[in-house]
Amino acid sequence: MKMQLEDAAAVLNVLCPMHVILSDDGTVLHSGATLQKLCHGRTLDGSQFFKVFDLRRPRDMRSIADLRRAAGQKLHLQLREAPHTGLKGVAVPWAHGAVVNLSFGISILDAVRDHALTSADFAATDMTVEMLYLVEAKSAAMEASRKLNQRLQGARIAAEEQAFTDTLTGLKNRRALAHVLRRLSSGPTGFALMHLDLDFFKAVNDTLGHPAGDHVLQEVARILVEETRDSDTVSRVGGDEFVLVLPGRTEPARLDAIAHRIITRLQQPIPFEGQVCRISGSIGTSLSDHYDPPDPDRMMADADLALYASKRQGRARHSFFKPGDRAGAT
């Protein structure tokens, strides 16, 4: 039985509110209410399909015969007039013309706004409204997630700024060292400040790479912790610079012994992934007894002078800063 236009239209109005029924010359015989809504003001029925819609793909489709040949294929179309909404479609031969059903595809977000569409504009079985719901729900959830990430990032930066630990070696950092020195300087206990600078560390980094350098720093940290007491402070204050603070240790002989033990252990070859890293260390020490009251900055600077004296003497040495050295050093 041949389906009459009115019968077809009645069915399609409910199932496909974005359909057009076309005659053999491309005239729109009937169109769904939602599709009509897209053509603000202009009546779709009676107009030429190819004048209202620009068929972008497949290319070179100009006639109903072309459309009928493309039956079942996915069509890409665009409204010729602003806002040039993009549409997907599929054509089916009907009588001597064709029925084309259209939908929005990914342009839906703009389309609902541009054409003020409501739930009633979509077929009852259409998933579009669910998709719009999902888009909004996901955006809201993403926004909550994004804000959480921002706050976590802020908290991480704040925590790092307040941290007392060097993340690579687990030793104290410069901040923590300053804190310890401030406390000791105002207390009654004398202390020694040892400034250790690694020798040949740059060569390890340059020839064996940064992973080897990082490994060496971690090994050095382990040695320094093992050669000191829990009450001592071991800190990494620069790339290959370490500062040890030893409260209650001010006898030069003991300190010299500790420094040499450290240097001896640093000179043991450090294996790393089949290679061997060789370093050494130079140390300069200042004693709080030489200051009244002890000034952390001066003690650091003086330990530094003693360190460079060790370096000048040919590395792998330990020197004490003695009052009077400063004048000659500059």
Binding site: L109, V112, R113, L117, T118, S119
Partner: peptide, 8 residues
């Protein structure tokens, strides 16, 4: 209530 959210 509009299906399309107001501000993009």
């Amino acid at each position: 209530f509009h299906l399309g959210a107001q501000a993009g």
